[in-house]
Design a binder for these strands. Structure first.
Length: 216
DNA sequence: ATCCCGAGGG
DNA sequence: CCCTCTGGAT
């Protein structure tokens, strides 16, 4: 098992990100696991702001899986329309509510395997729920983190699974959830897809992406 | 016009 | 692997 960088180096890089984004870990702030699950499903391909705009009234209307399970689909679609992909998300939410009732006694499951089996919940959403609702460490590798991977020494086409495993080995378990947020945040704010804002980046020293022009 | 803090399906 | 599904931000 060869790791791309030393643990010391990885921690140093993470610490710089922590200084840069002191509030990155507060992005998702919901009361119950159920609410967090719903909010996270809604947040696919959409920013937190747009989700937050919808959730307050949404949770009044659908406070629990029971209410979701028997929601009127067209109404629910209207309620979440501004988060994008609303047709998929609405049907998935209803199916989710039904499945939570039928198989989990109305509770949000606490294992990755069970969470991923919920309609509309993939690896990313499942890990976010595990970390934020139950404090169970999980590493989230999304498109942003994959892009950052080069900074941490992985090759361009490394698989997400390998990156995830390595990150878990490199970083202390108690920092996994926060580190994941920091990495995602950095990928979105500075190390952006087409044009990274390297001049403001605290990690630009030795970074292979510095000076990279749009690759297409 | 173009890009998203993804998931599901072919 | 590829494609589709959406509105909103920029």
């Amino acid at each position: 098992m060869k790791l791309p960088v030393s643990q010391k180096k990885a921690l140093a890089l993470l610490y710089r990100l922590y200084r840069l984004y002191p509030h990155a870990h507060c992005a998702l702030n919901y009361r119950t696991p159920f609410q967090l699950l719903v909010a996270t499903i809604l947040s696919a391909q959409c920013t937190d702001k747009r989700v937050n705009k919808v959730t307050e009234s949404l949770f009044e209307k659908y406070p629990d899986p029971q209410a979701l399970a028997c929601a009127d689909l067209p109404t629910l679609e209207l309620d979440i329309r501004s988060t994008g992909f609303y047709r998929n998300k609405a049907t998935n939410l209803v199916l989710c509510g039904q499945r939570l009732l039928e198989r989990h006694g109305g509770q949000v499951p606490t294992s990755l395997e069970e969470l991923v089996r919920l309609p509309g919940v993939g690896r990313k959403t499942a890990n976010v729920v595990l970390g934020n609702a139950f404090g169970i460490p999980g590493m989230v590798v999304d498109t942003h983190v994959k892009r950052l991977a080069r900074r941490f020494g992985w090759t361009v086409n490394e698989t997400p699974e390998k990156i995830e495993q390595d990150l878990c080995l490199l970083l202390p378990r108690e920092h996994w959830v926060q580190s994941a947020h920091l990495l995602i945040w950095h990928g979105r704010e500075l190390c952006k897809a087409p044009v990274p804002l390297c001049s403001c980046c605290p990690l630009q020293e030795d970074c292979p992406r510095v000076g990279v022009v749009r690759a297409r």
